[in-house]
Computed example of a mutant assay.
Amino acid sequence: MKRILVIFLLITGAYIVWNYMFDGSGVNFAKAENAVKVTSQTENISIDISSVETMIVAEDRDDVRAELKGKGTVKVDKHGDEIEVAVKRKGFFWFNWFEMDKTSLTVYIPEDYEKNMQIKLGSGEVVFKGDSIHSPMKLKNLAIEIGSGSMVLENLDVESLEHQSSSGEAEFNTVVAESGSFEVSSGSVHVKNYSGKLKADVSSGELEIQMKRLTDDVNLNVSSGDIELDLPDDADFTLNGKISSGDISSQFPLENKEASDNRLSGKHGSGKYEINADVSSGDIEIF
């Protein structure tokens, strides 16, 4: 019995070494890369990654190019009007932490691409930044889905922002959107310098939003967890708060204020925009 166990351990160890050092044809730590040209028919760029440190870089180019340094392969494929970037990793899943330490992906996209983008993160880390505050990356629709890991997005100007996270952490900084939605079922999301219409649903976890300007309505729903909404001092809004359990609080002085165990309402400034807050459990703080 011991002999069989020793043989099994030797075979397993040999497989691990082979898998991490070789890919059947030699050492596999050289970078892999692939590219597809962006045309006027390209409507969406989809990036699907897991267990990789990823940088998305917008620059003067006419294609989507991906370069992988480390273990695995990367493919950039075109399917109809969509360009897809995907990374394939090998090895035992419980050694993903080891792979992630030495594997990185850089995805280059055209800086003048202004259509749709979808980023799906299973684990690992993603950083995507526009050039600057005054020269942001412009997109039509940006859809973000995070299973775990972390994501940093900065200097973006989009028509529609859709964010879903079931775990992990996301940071947004300097984002302008005609409409934005944040759905948080776990983990934490931190947003700074946001402008645009806002809809947020938190079933668990934490959402912090600091708005640079209040330019449209805000809808907040918490079934569990917390939302913190940081507004400009001169924000003009009418607050409509409903409470089943938990709490809604506002540090703004409110005209025509109504406060009870299940309601908080009132007006600040001209009351131009509506802030609708609904708490079935958890907390919403407005300040």
Rank of each mutant, 00 (worst) to 15 (best):
R213A: 13
V38C: 04
E33C: 00
F93P: 06
M137P: 00
K197W: 00
F287L: 03
G124E: 00
Y20P: 00
L105F: 05
V6M: 10
E285R: 13
Y20A: 01
E53F: 04
D62Y: 12
E145V: 10
A86Q: 07
I16P: 01
F182N: 05
V222I: 11
R89I: 05
T215F: 14
N34T: 06
S40Y: 04
G241K: 11
T54S: 07
I45S: 00
K2T: 15
G266H: 08
K140L: 06
E43G: 03
V38R: 05
K138S: 11
Q164N: 12
S245G: 08
K88D: 12
W97Q: 00
E33T: 06
S167I: 10
V222N: 01
L139T: 05
V152T: 12
E178Q: 09
K75S: 08
F252E: 06
L121R: 03
K192E: 11
G196K: 08
D63T: 12
E82S: 07
S204R: 05
A66C: 07
N262V: 09
S46D: 06
L254T: 09
G282P: 01
D216F: 11
G241C: 07
R263E: 14
G196E: 01
L220Q: 02
G130M: 12
S25L: 11
T106V: 14
I243G: 07
G80N: 09
F93I: 02
S25W: 11
P110E: 03
N193C: 04
R213Y: 15
A58V: 08
V218D: 08
A14V: 09
E82D: 04
I227Y: 02
G180Q: 01
L156K: 14
V222H: 04
Q41G: 01
I47W: 03
P110Q: 07
E154Q: 15
L9N: 02
G271R: 09
I11L: 15
D77H: 00
T106G: 01
V52S: 03
D201H: 10
T12P: 00
N116C: 05
M117A: 13
D216R: 10
V184R: 03
N34K: 15
E99F: 10
S224Q: 04
M55V: 12
I286P: 05
A177V: 05
F22L: 09
D201S: 13
N116G: 04
E206R: 14
D63P: 06
A200V: 15
F95P: 02
Q251E: 13
T12I: 13
S50H: 11
F98T: 01
